[in-house]
Amino acid sequence: MNYRLENDDLCVEFTTRGGGLTSIRDKSGREYLWQGDPLYWSGQAPVLFPICGSLREEQAVTEDGKPVHMPRHGIVRKEEFKLEFMYKDKICFSIVENESMLSQFPYRFRLSITYTLKEKQIQVTYGILNRDTANMPFFIGGHPAFNCPLDSGEDYSDYKIVFEQEENCTVPAPVTETGLIDMGTRTLMLEGSDTLRLNQDLFKKDAMIFDQLKSRKIQYIHRQEQKGIQLEFPQFPYLILWSSNNNGPFIALEPWSGLSTCSDEDDVLEHKRNVLIAEPGLLEELSYTITIL
C-alpha cells in the first residue's frame, strides 16, 4: 500500500513494503528521491535492520551461542509493514518478527518507522523494542538515495558533498567480493577540507565508508546553485556514500549505526563496533533528518 503526506512545500510518498520512502517532490514537481531504475539499482530508501552491511559468510553468533544467519542489510527491507497511524504531518509503520525472521535473528522485536513532515524537512525516527527476555544486540541504518543530477541537462560532477566541518579522514576499503571491510587498507579522502566533488569514479570499487567523521550534518548540493539535500544524523556514528558502479544517476546518503563485519573483528555480534543493546522491554529510538534546500 502507498501513502502520502503533503504540505505547502513538499509531497512525500511511502510504501508499506519495507516501510520506506518512495518519492520526495517539491511544489515545482522536482523529484529528489531516486526512483529505483533496475538498470542501476532497484532500491530507493530501504531500512537496514538488525544489521547494516554484511556478516562474514552471512553468519554470526551471539555471546550466548545463538546462531545468526542474515543476508546483506538484514531482514526487514523487503517485508510488509503495518500502518500504525497517519496524521496530517506524520505517518508510522511497524513490523514484528515472524518465524522466518526468528530463524535468521533469534530475538523477538518490534520495529517502527515514523516520518514527520515539517515545512521542507522530513524527520525519520526508528523505534526498536526488544520483545524478548534476553538483551538484544542490533544495528540500524537508513539508505535513502537521491537523483544525481537533480535536473536534466546537468552532470553528476555538477554536484558536491559539503561537510559540516573541515575533515581530515581516511576511509577503509570495501571488499566487493564479500561485502566486508578491510580496515588495514585505508585511502585519504578529505585533508583539511569540507568539500567532496562528486564523480562516478568514486564508486567504481563500491561505497565510501566514512568512519572518522567529526561532522554530523552534510549537504548534497549543486556546485553553483543552492539546491539539493541536507542530511543530519547526530545519533549515527557512520556515513556511507554510494552509487552503482555502472554510472548510476543517483547518490545514496546513508546514516548507519554499525558497519559490515570488519577485517579486525570476529563473528560474535556483540563484539562488533558500536553495537547497540536493547534490554528486554526497552524501546530504543534513533532519528535522522532530510531537509530539501
Rank of each mutant, 00 (worst) to 15 (best):
Q226S: 12
E225F: 03
T195A: 13
R72I: 04
N246V: 12
S152R: 11
G127F: 03
L188P: 07
G141Y: 04
E167L: 08
I251Y: 00
N130G: 08
V96S: 12
P237I: 14
P144S: 05
L198T: 02
P237H: 11
R273I: 08
V175F: 03
L10A: 07
E31F: 05
A252L: 10
Q235D: 15
N98G: 05
D89R: 08
L213T: 01
E254I: 07
C92A: 09
E265D: 11
W256V: 09
G43D: 09
M208C: 12
Y156V: 15
C169Q: 10
D64G: 01
D8H: 10
Y40N: 06
E232H: 08
S54C: 13
P174C: 06
E167W: 10
D206I: 01
I209F: 03
E285V: 10
Y288R: 10
P144L: 02
D206H: 04
L196H: 02
P50V: 04
I24W: 00
R72A: 05
Q230G: 07
L239R: 04
T195D: 08
L259H: 03
H143T: 06
N7L: 01
S152A: 15
L129S: 01
G179I: 00
I218C: 09
Y87L: 14
M136S: 07
G20Q: 12
S263D: 07
Q235H: 13
L213A: 02
S28P: 07
V68D: 05
L241M: 11
R110D: 02
I229Y: 05
P234T: 14
I277V: 15
T187H: 14
I277M: 14
D194K: 10
L198F: 03
F163I: 15
I161N: 02
T125G: 00
G281A: 09
G228W: 01
N246E: 05
G127L: 02
F163D: 03
S244W: 04
S94H: 07
G142Y: 04
Q44I: 00
Y115K: 03
Q104H: 12
I128V: 15
T170D: 13
Q235Y: 11
I277P: 07
L39M: 11
G281I: 10
E84D: 12
F81L: 06
L117F: 14
V47M: 09
D64L: 07
D267W: 00
R223K: 15
I181S: 09
R186F: 00
D264K: 04
L202Q: 06
G18R: 02
H222V: 09
D9K: 12
G142W: 00
A278T: 08
H143N: 12
P255Q: 08
R273A: 09
L293F: 13
Q59N: 13
R131C: 14
G29Y: 10
D158V: 05
F233T: 06
T125K: 12
Q59S: 13
S193A: 13
